[in-house]
Amino acid sequence: MKKQLIIMDFTGVYNYEPFIRNQNCIWLDCRHLYGTECYCDEEGAASLKRLIADYPAEGIHFIDSGNYHYLTKFWTDKLNYPFSLLVFDHHPDMQPPLFEDMISCGSWVKDMLDTNPYLQKVVVAGASEALIRAVPDIYRDRVHFYGEKALKQEETWKRFASEHVNEPVYISIDKDVLNPESAVTNWDQGSLSLQELEQLLAVVFRHEKIAGIDICGECSATLDLFEEKREAAINGRANQELLELISSFRTPTEL
């Protein structure tokens, strides 16, 4: 399967990140859409689903800032076979939504567990231990957590490396799992280095079939042009490294 690269542009931030230059990619302009930031209402959801209707989940999707992380649900709704979800995120994204008729960047994992019949298991890596403790017990038999602090311990790395699933894995990466030296986001961040994230990803790529990948965690624009350029340079380097790592592996699905 060809590695299809899709850029979903909500904020214009990718225009400042050199990693995308000279890439053969599909650019989806989302800047004209309403009802999509953080919370996605019915109109916004319908517009986004129409926008991605012709593209498969089996590819690499850059989906802008963490405000749009719920797009993972829309991409994985396209999978019509059993799969597991691996999320690298400083937040478990399993909060009950404030509005029942909306999906949000903080509730989408819970929504997937509640509604997707093909989702077998969720693995969340790098989340804050405090936020993990707040996850309702009803989901814990289907969700495995590798907390931020726990990932600093060798024993946790061994457990992560030995975790195996029989079905393909969809990987979702929010760069807020990284420390501020490795990425700059508009949410509070974790402490993983980019090298540590890449080592964890390499373990998965070596052992699992990959159904698709998305990456978010860009930093929204500010009024400080110098700061914007600095942030875009840091995030662009992280995106470039992640894209090179992903492209270097051949999995059984040849993603």
Rank of each mutant, 00 (worst) to 15 (best):
L243A: 04
T11Q: 08
I132P: 02
S248K: 08
M94T: 02
R133D: 15
E37F: 02
L119R: 02
A233S: 13
G190S: 05
T76Y: 06
L119Q: 02
A211Y: 10
E208M: 13
H32R: 04
I63D: 04
R159T: 11
S128M: 09
K2H: 12
S128F: 03
W187R: 02
E129T: 11
V143A: 05
W108F: 12
T253F: 15
E228C: 13
H32A: 07
T72A: 10
V123M: 12
E198T: 09
I7L: 15
W27R: 11
K121N: 14
V204Y: 07
K73R: 14
K175E: 06
M112Y: 06
N239F: 06
V87L: 15
I20F: 15
D9F: 04
I171G: 02
D214T: 01
D176H: 05
D41K: 00
L119P: 02
Q153V: 12
R206N: 14
T222V: 03
S247T: 11
L28R: 01
A238F: 09
T185G: 03
M94F: 07
E208T: 08
L98W: 08
D54T: 07
R31I: 01
R237I: 13
G236H: 06
S193I: 06
H164R: 14
Q189A: 11
S247L: 14
D93L: 05
E218W: 01
C40Y: 00
C216I: 02
I60E: 04
I103C: 01
E163D: 14
K121L: 12
L71H: 03
D54Y: 04
T36I: 10
V124I: 15
N15E: 15
G12C: 00
P96F: 08
V135F: 09
L242R: 00
K229Q: 15
E181P: 10
E129A: 12
G147T: 01
Q120P: 02
E148C: 09
P96E: 10
D188V: 06
L86F: 10
K3V: 11
K121G: 07
A127H: 04
N239L: 03
D111W: 10
R142D: 11
T253W: 14
F83C: 03
L98V: 09
C30G: 02
S104C: 07
R31K: 12
A134P: 04
R142I: 03
F62Q: 04
S172M: 06
S65F: 05
D141C: 11
F145A: 01
M112L: 13
G126R: 02
K209Y: 13
F226P: 00
I138A: 13
K152M: 13
L197D: 02
L255K: 00
R206H: 13
H61E: 04
E155C: 12
D93Y: 01
A161Q: 11
L245W: 07
F19T: 00
D174I: 04
N116L: 15
